[in-house]
Design a protein around this nucleic acid. Structure first.
Lengths: 224, 224
DNA sequence: CGAGCAGGATTGCAGCAACGTTGCGGCGCC
DNA sequence: GGCGCCGCAACGTTGCTGCAATCCTGCTCG
């Protein structure tokens, strides 16, 4: 799960990134509307958390442009302006939810989960490959009903691979899904995660293998 | 090949997923009509396998909505109701095929293959030449659903040729797409890649050939 | 019509870049 | 303070890739 936060207050951004990180979500941060559009054009996000007061305009103005680009993506608007008519306006503009500051992080998380559940954009509920079942809603992988207890990074790797099961996932794409686009990574630690994942998948006879294609990326497929 | 199965019985779903998996098909599973619409909105499927008895309604009601979304996509209806007038009704509703339970998996597979053969190209992001399908989005080539495990350079050659399928690609153009502008190349290694590609394409009976035009370049076309 | 030639095809080989694996240390979290 | 995740780096391994030598094929020109 990868979300884009459009918010100019750095403290808020950092706090949310930390909170979402505990639920294995990747949060990309865009401080302005321009940054947000650039990020959306170049990356695949599952949802947007949008602040209204931004240096270069009202966050709501982003919504039509977002809809033009990726019509079904869920948008949650955050704002200090919490009056009823403001909410109505935000929702009429196309937002899927509207949350007034100050808010409890728990509530935001719950609303995100709810949106993702009923959102048309986060599609197939589960992926099955071999004996492996990946539950995108519950964000967990299981083999023959037994839940795999995977650390965060490995889970993100597997999720990204399962989302595009049977198709190659480019290395750069994978890095983005696991680390986010601004998070630097200057080692082969992605390979390390893949390696550990492979061991666990084979130890549990998941019936899947992570096949690597040199110079391109990886792909998840049933083992022969 | 990626199919969407709309079916509420989990056993059936698991069995079909296993059967199709053996033929290198990807099966996404949607247990309800709502899930199906969500999945269709966000993923590229090559066909739909639709059960009639679903928790939230008759599967047939999905067909008009599917047609509105992706008009040409093949739909196979599965049902326990096999009477003739039921079949007629299903087909009149727009289904491409109608199969009564219980059915043989082999028959279903054959009908899927038949439908795929005569259906127009669903996803504009793929090119089909002979039995070869090149997925420009996923950057991979497959023959009859089986993914070709090609190294980077060969994949680039094939991609460039598939982009201009049936037309000649100048040698210099090909070199550019394979090596980039600044990368120098002072040997016939491009020919070497073409040669290796040819071998793999014929070994997998891809039904395509790389024809060379002396002094000009190459072109990809179905073999005779 | 045949020899010569130029461009293309094929293949072995060696270098090296990409990938795999593992251990370590730091850091955060119970 | 113990435990486990994670980034990192070192080192082993694989197999892609550029190169060149050799063979093949079609074109040209006398």
């Amino acid at each position: 799960m990868r979300l884009l936060l459009v918010e100019d207050e750095l403290e808020m951004a950092a706090a949310l990134a930390a909170a979402l990180g505990r639920y294995d979500m990747i949060l990309d941060h865009a401080p302005t509307l321009d940054h947000a559009m650039a990020a959306l054009a170049n990356h695949v996000h599952d949802g947007i958390i949008l602040d209204r007061q931004l240096p270069d305009g009202d966050g709501l103005s982003l919504i039509p442009r977002v809809r033009a680009l990726k019509s079904g993506i869920p948008v949650i608007v955050l704002t200090a302006r919490g009056a009823v008519d403001e909410r109505v306006r935000g929702l009429d503009m196309g937002a899927d939810d509207y949350l007034a500051k100050p808010f409890a992080v728990e509530e935001l998380l719950a609303r995100i989960r709810a949106l993702m559940r009923r959102s048309p954009d986060i599609a197939p509920i589960t992926a099955r490959i071999g004996n492996l079942v990946f539950d995108f809603d519950g964000r967990q992988a299981s083999v023959n009903g037994r839940i795999l207890d995977l650390p965060r990074r490995e889970l993100l790797v597997l999720e990204a691979l399962a989302r595009r099961q049977g198709r190659t996932v480019q290395r750069s794409t994978l890095e983005e899904s696991v680390y986010g686009y601004d998070d630097e990574i200057q080692s082969n630690s992605l390979d390390a995660h893949v390696s550990r994942l492979r061991r666990k998948l084979s130890e549990t006879s998941a019936g899947v293998e992570i096949h690597s294609i040199r110079g391109v990326g990886y792909l998840l497929r049933p083992s022969l």
